[in-house]
């Protein structure tokens, strides 16, 4: 089975924007891969005039938020680095006994989505503007202008990424496996890999992924 890879356009975000941007992107991707019975839930971003769609699965929501928190803490430890988050969908391979000898059931990845973020340094933006200012308006007009300009640019880029997802979903349909579980909203097993996680327990997955796709999961 083919494994398709989608590298999403890099987004330059500030620290406080990470959460919303990642939620938006991750949920949008999963919504396209949640082929079970879905009751779509519209979510309006607070920082941008964008509405994205969740598939209304609390488990998924929880998992995504957890991963985002992990990612954010990783970013705090590794400032000034470009970072990548990978959302992968796979099938569980049961046939080969050989797989039993490995510590995990073999996963056949059929799709990887790479979300590329460049977290801007706060200091670089403006010393006075700390991330806490996300909602609060900054005193300086110049700073405000700059900020709003930057915000608008990010919004446009985020929109681009969302369309990139849509286009990818449209163009690549053949590799999507048959829907295994119609009852589950999120019909395919998935995993979200972040840089920090790759350091530790996820080594195996990373290696596998590298072998399969040739793309290193870890960035940094």
């Amino acid at each position: 089975m083919n494994c398709e890879v989608c590298q999403l356009k890099e987004l330059e975000v500030e620290h406080f924007e990470i959460r919303e941007v990642l939620r938006c992107i991750l949920h949008t991707i999963v919504f396209h891969r949640a082929l079970g019975l879905v009751r779509p839930k519209d979510i309006d971003l607070e920082l941008f005039e964008i509405t994205y769609v969740q598939c209304g699965d609390s488990e998924l929501e929880k998992k995504i938020d957890e991963k985002i928190e992990q990612f954010i803490s990783w970013v705090e430890k590794h400032p000034n680095k470009k970072s990548q988050i990978c959302l992968s969908f796979y099938e569980v391979k049961k046939n080969k006994q050989a797989s039993w000898f490995t510590n995990k059931i073999e996963r056949l990845y059929w799709e990887h989505w790479y979300i590329n973020l460049n977290v801007a340094q706060q200091a670089r933006t403006h010393s006075s503007k700390s991330h806490h200012s996300k909602v609060v308006v900054d005193p300086g007009e110049g700073a405000l202008d700059e900020r709003s300009t930057r915000r608008a640019a990010l919004e446009a880029s985020l929109r681009e990424v969302l369309f990139q997802i849509i286009k990818f979903v449209n163009e690549k349909k053949d590799h999507v496996p048959p829907i295994p579980n119609l009852e589950a909203v999120v019909s395919f097993p998935y995993e979200i890999t972040i840089p920090s996680s790759s350091d530790s327990a996820f080594g195996m997955d990373i290696i596998k992924r590298m072998l399969q796709t040739g793309h290193p999961t870890m960035l940094s």
Binding site: L35, P40, D42, Y52, V53, R159, L162, F163
Partner: peptide, 20 residues
Amino acid sequence: HMFYKKSILLLRSLYVTVRL
């Protein structure tokens, strides 16, 4: 089945697109 699955995908992307 394939057609049905693809049409599901198409409608998913339509749903998202309409909001963008």
